[in-house]
């Protein structure tokens, strides 16, 4: 992204220039190859889901979000994550030189593969990373069935 424009490359040898452009194009296409992943995650925040037979853990990176501004609700199999990242409050006369960090509201809703024991959901926010542990409802847990000999 912070690459120098082509015209700044001034090399004496035209073949080297072509070689370099070819590499540059290759890199561009490599970047396109990554887009499907970002298309899978059209909204903020990106999440990771970890599961085992007792439940799931959902993690999300929310740097700069106050824990009070995060709202988690669980109904049945649905997890809803809402919140907002507030813009920095600048003192008067301050001006931005560079602004890359976004802010605003976010909402994401996920369908989990099981019913959640809503009373035992725990969420921890540490170093800008949110961990939500979602235990599976007891009634839904897989059960081992003993086979009796006839």
């Amino acid at each position: 992204m912070f690459r120098r424009p082509f015209h700044l490359y001034r090399s004496q040898n035209p073949w080297r220039e072509i070689d370099r452009m070819q590499r540059e194009m290759g890199r561009l296409f490599d970047e396109f190859a990554y887009t499907p992943r970002s298309r899978m995650a059209p909204s903020f925040p990106a999440i990771n889901v970890w599961t085992n037979e007792d439940g799931a853990v959902v993690t999300a990176e929310l740097p700069g979000v106050n824990p009070e501004d995060i709202d988690i609700s669980v109904v049945g199999e649905t997890l809803k994550l809402t919140g907002s990242r507030r813009p920095e409050e600048l003192e008067e006369g301050a001006k931005y030189h560079r602004r890359e960090r976004g802010f605003g509201n976010f909402t994401r809703t996920f369908q989990l593969p099981f019913t959640v024991e809503a009373d035992n959901v725990e969420a921890v926010f540490d170093k800008g990373v949110l961990h939500i542990s979602l235990p599976r409802a007891e009634a839904e847990k897989p059960r081992k069935i003993a086979v009796k000999a006839a």
Binding site: E88, L90, G93, A94, K95, Y96, H97, K127, G128, V129
Partner: peptide
């Protein structure tokens, strides 16, 4: 890390998103 840089009368302030770092 994504960064903001702003200037006040006394200082330049740099903010960078680095979740998971302590």
């Amino acid at each position: 890390p994504r960064a903001d840089i702003y200037e006040t009368e006394e200082a330049l302030v740099l903010l960078a998103d680095m979740p998971g770092v302590d």
